[in-house]
């Protein structure tokens, strides 16, 4: 197993020998952290998001635009329609209220 260990150490040393300098690594890291975001990531993401929102908002509207007038006319027609039996649905209270006699004094014959 020490053979394997030696191989691993050789690989580690080979990688370590090819490492960029610590100062350069740290400087790049700090520059990356100081940047407002990953270059190009945010604008691209924002553009894609805006495109999607526009697509979701505009595409259905464009599709429906041609039939909008027809839809309004249909809605008006439906709201004006009344069933033939709708008359039976009149609340009985309204009928009673309509037929209730007025109780003005002039309409009541008072005894002399």
């Amino acid at each position: 197993m020490s053979d394997t260990r030696d191989l691993f150490r050789s690989l580690r040393d080979a990688d370590g020998g090819r490492a960029p300098s610590f100062a350069a690594t740290l400087a790049s890291g700090r520059a990356r952290a100081a940047a407002p975001g990953r270059p190009g990531t945010f604008p691209a993401a924002a553009a894609v998001l805006a495109g999607l929102v526009l697509a979701f908002v505009l595409v259905p509207r464009v599709k429906q635009d041609g039939s909008l007038r027809a839809a309004i006319a249909s809605a008006r027609e439906m709201s004006a329609w009344s069933a033939p039996t709708a008359v039976f649905l009149d609340p009985i209270e309204r009928t009673l209220q309509d037929s209730t006699p007025t109780l003005a004094l002039s309409s009541v014959p008072l005894p002399e």
């Binding site: 960029p20 690594t25 740290l26 790049s28 890291g29 700090r30 990356r32 952290a33």
Partner: peptide, 9 residues
């Protein structure tokens, strides 16, 4: 390299 930069920071 990128991972190391970020880790050090």
């Amino acid at each position: 390299e990128e991972v190391l930069q970020m880790s050090y920071v």
